[in-house]
């Protein structure tokens, strides 16, 4: 009899049936006992893992939606949005685990900001509330616009789970907050009407450049405080005149410039960035790392030399 035939005609004896059945039942019972014994600890470990993944998912949401006003490091942007990573806002926290591996957040230094505005709930709840429903009334002229409503049910782009994730991300800054002196802090309640510098009047050429900035579609990707639409794909140009000066002095610029002579003045740098956008890619954009090829490379053909001069003149004046 071939082995094949032996297998297909196999009929387990009575003893084999009873024994196999019993052993299977014992195996099932031991597996259940094994799982049951350490289940609480395993559940807690897994809960901490999912908390960690919520921070990861929240980081993605933060860089897509929040960084354009609150800064890529949560440091805040003048006139756009206050710091979220500052010790004043997030305080200082520690992650602690008990014997059963249950993780919880221990508040070492509570948020000064919540105390200031009189919010009685948790920081996490405050972040969720503000992100979801925005801030309905203007209490300060420190920011150009009120916090928008990001929650889906208030017409915003984010679902509830994304808002909870981004709150996890921001609370997580509390493990190592930015010192307050490196952050843009919001004014205390009642002190919001700070004097704002009178804008320097623009020359006619600069006015023409400003009009070009809005007409040529720059606002689709870039933002200048108080001018036209506020794009969020490319770098913010509110202080580009000052930034350009810092850039040309930086080592990163000198080391990473490709195919173009290094600019020596802010105006040259700006002109170079418009005509040859790929010559130098800055490391940080509102949505994380900046990409090459995002900016069209044909602006030299789209504008007359005079128009280009006006635009560069205008942008250089922004400091």
């Amino acid at each position: 009899m071939s082995i094949f035939k032996k297998i297909v005609t196999y009929r387990p004896s009575f003893t084999v049936r009873i024994l196999t059945g019993l052993i299977s039942m014992l195996i099932m019972l031991s597996v259940c006992t094994f799982i049951g014994l350490a289940d609480r600890t395993r559940l807690n470990v897994r809960a901490a893992e999912f908390d960690a993944r919520a921070v990861e998912a929240g980081a993605k949401v933060y860089f897509d939606q929040c960084a354009r006003c609150h800064g890529v490091k949560g440091e805040g942007i003048e006139g756009q949005g206050p710091a979220l990573a500052s010790e004043q806002f997030v305080g200082r926290i520690e992650l602690v685990r008990d014997d059963m591996q249950l993780q919880s957040i221990k508040v070492v230094v509570p948020s000064e900001r919540l105390n200031q505005i009189g919010w009685t709930g948790s920081l996490r709840d405050y972040i969720i509330a503000v992100t979801e429903s925005g801030i309905p009334i203007k209490t300060s002229n420190a920011w150009d616009v009120n916090h928008p409503t990001f929650g889906e049910r208030f017409g915003g782009p984010l679902r509830g789970d994304q808002i909870r994730d981004v709150a996890s991300f921001i609370v997580n800054y509390g493990l190592d907050p930015l010192p307050n002196d490196q952050a843009i802090l919001p004014p205390a309640p009642g002190e919001g009407q700070a004097a704002r510098p009178t804008p320097v009047p623009l020359t006619p050429a600069q006015e023409a450049g400003k009009a070009l900035y809005e007409a040529k579609g720059c606002t689709a990707c870039h933002a200048i405080r108080g001018v036209g639409a506020q794009g969020a794909l490319g770098p913010n140009l509110t202080r580009i005149g000052a930034v350009a000066e810092e850039r040309i002095a930086s080592d990163h610029y000198k080391a990473n410039l490709q195919g173009q002579p290094p600019a020596t003045t802010a105006a040259e740098y700006i002109r170079q960035s418009i005509i040859h956008p790929n010559a130098y890619i800055v490391p940080e954009c509102p949505q994380g790392a900046c990409l090459a090829n995002l900016m069209p490379q044909n602006y030299e053909q789209q504008m007359t030399p005079e128009e280009l001069n006006n635009l560069v003149d205008y942008l250089s004046s922004l400091k």
Binding site: P12, R17, T20, I23, S24, I27, M28, V31, A57, D161
Partner: peptide, 29 residues
């Protein structure tokens, strides 16, 4: 007894698999 044996072995294989190598996937929201 034959049927009980088959059912028992099937359950045991499922239980061992889920306790060891198998994990149902759960991706992002």
């Amino acid at each position: 007894t034959n049927e009980l044996m088959y059912a028992g072995v099937a359950f045991a294989i499922l239980a061992i698999s889920c306790a060891t190598w198998y994990s149902a996937p759960l991706e992002h929201h």
